[in-house]
Design a protein around this nucleic acid. Structure first.
Lengths: 211, 211
DNA sequence: GCGTGTGAACTCATTCACAGCT
DNA sequence: AGCTGTGAATGAGTTCACACGC
C-alpha cells in the first residue's frame, strides 16, 4: 500500500491502535493526540507518531488525530474493512473448543467456518453451530468454503502433519497453538501462540530477581 | 545470575531452547551443535551461540553443546528447576476452562491451584478438581496457597479491576488474556496474550500482498 | 501554546567472520 | 575438520529534539 517498508514491531502494534480507536469512537471522542494514546496504550508518543507516519499524514497540528478517520485507516491497513476472513479450526480439544466459543473473533470479522478433528467420536457432531469434520475433508472444505486462515490446536506430535495438509489445501495463514515449530512454504504466514512460553517467561523474571 | 544484561529477545527464545533440549534428551541425543539447533528451531546458529554465551560457556569446540547439561542450565535460568509455581486463574469462561484443562502447564511445573469467578452459579462448583471461588476470596487464598502468578481470563471491562485485586494480594506475575492494557505496579511482571491480535496480524499480511 | 512529522542520534539485536580449542 | 565464543560491522527500532502548522 505505502511502500516505505514498515517495521515488524509497528505491525504488531496496529491491532492495539485499532482497538483503542474503536473504543474512543464508541465513547464519542473525536480527536486524540499521540500523548493521549501514549497514556492509554503504554507506547511512547514519539513511537506512535512514527508508526502512523508510515501510513500517511493524518494528524492535525495543535489538535491531534481524528479518531474515526484514523480508525478507518487502521481497519483498512489490517484488512478488516468490510472484509470477512473465513477460518478453519483443526483440533477440537479443550483449547479448540474455547476458540470456537470465543466471541472476540467474530467481532473482528474472523469467522470459524469449519472445525476438524481426528477423533471419530467427535466427527459429525456439532459444537456451537459448527460441524466437526474429518481431517480428510480439509482440502475439499477449505476450497469450498473459501478459508484463508487455519488454526492449529492439536497436540505437538500432530502439528506438522496438520500444517502440511493445510498448506496443500491452499490456506494462506496459520496460527499454531502447538508448542512446536512447524515448517511451511514461505508464502504462508505463520503465527505461533505458546501459552507455556508466556508462563516460563514470567517465571524467568521471578526466578532471577533483576530490576 | 549472570550480570551481562540479557536482551529481551533472548529471554523469549529460552523456552524454545528448553523444550527442544528436553525433546533431544528424551530421544537419547547427547550432544548438539548450534547449527543443529538452528535447523530445528529456525533461529540462526550465530544467534543461538550468542544467546547461550550470555549465560556462560557450555559448548565444546568441534563437538557442540552437551544436551542434558544445557537443558539443566536452561531450566535453572527459567526458574523451572525442581521449583513449583502456584498459579491462580481468574475467569472460568470458555477460555478459562480450557486453561484449567491444559496439560502443558503442569508439565512445566505450573500448577493452577485456585480459580475465581464472579458468577454466583459457578462459585462453589469444581472443575477439573479445582474449586471455583468468589473474587472476594482472592486476597486470602492467594496468600494462603502461596500463589505467585495470576491468569486473567475475564472480559475486557473487568480486567483492570481484577488486576488491581491481584496486585494488592501480593501476586508477582500476571498473564492477561483480555484484549486491553492493564496498569499494575512496576514490580509485577505482566505478559499479554491477545488472540485476536494474532489473527489481525495475519490478516494484515494477507491484505497487503508484500513479500 | 499545543501537537504533528521527521531528520539525526542513539540503543538494542542480529549477523559476519575468524581466532582459538579439541 | 568441526564448532564455539566473541569483537566488530551491520541492521532494526526507538527516542530526541525541533521546524513547522493550526
Amino acid at each position: 500500500m505505502f511502500s516505505k517498508k514498515i517495521p515488524e514491531t509497528t505491525i504488531r502494534r496496529l491491532s492495539a491502535y485499532f482497538r483503542q480507536l474503536s473504543f474512543l469512537e464508541k465513547n464519542g471522542i473525536v480527536s486524540i493526540s499521540s500523548s493521549g494514546l501514549s497514556q492509554r496504550l503504554g507506547f511512547t508518543d514519539a513511537q506512535i507518531r512514527r508508526d502512523f507516519s508510515y501510513f500517511g499524514q493524518f494528524g492535525q497540528s495543535g489538535i491531534g488525530y481524528p479518531v474515526s478517520e484514523l480508525k478507518k485507516v487502521m481497519a483498512k491497513i489490517l484488512g478488516l474493512d468490510n472484509k470477512i476472513w473465513n477460518v478453519a479450526l483443526v483440533g477440537v480439544g479443550n483449547l479448540g473448543s474455547a476458540l470456537l466459543a470465543y466471541k472476540g473473533f467474530k467481532e473482528q470479522g474472523f469467522f470459524i467456518k469449519v472445525a476438524f478433528d481426528i477423533n471419530p467420536r467427535k466427527i459429525g457432531r456439532s459444537f456451537r453451530d459448527i460441524k466437526i469434520e474429518s481431517l480428510k475433508k480439509i482440502p475439499s472444505l477449505v476450497k469450498q468454503k473459501n478459508i484463508s486462515i487455519g488454526i492449529i490446536a492439536v497436540p505437538s506430535e500432530a502439528a506438522q502433519e496438520v500444517a502440511n495438509i493445510l498448506s496443500h489445501s491452499g490456506i494462506k495463514g496459520i496460527i499454531n497453538f502447538a508448542p512446536v515449530r512447524i515448517n511451511v512454504p514461505s508464502r504462508i504466514i505463520v503465527r505461533h501462540v505458546d501459552l507455556s512460553m508466556e508462563l516460563e517467561n514470567i517465571s524467568y523474571f521471578l526466578a532471577t530477581k533483576r530490576k
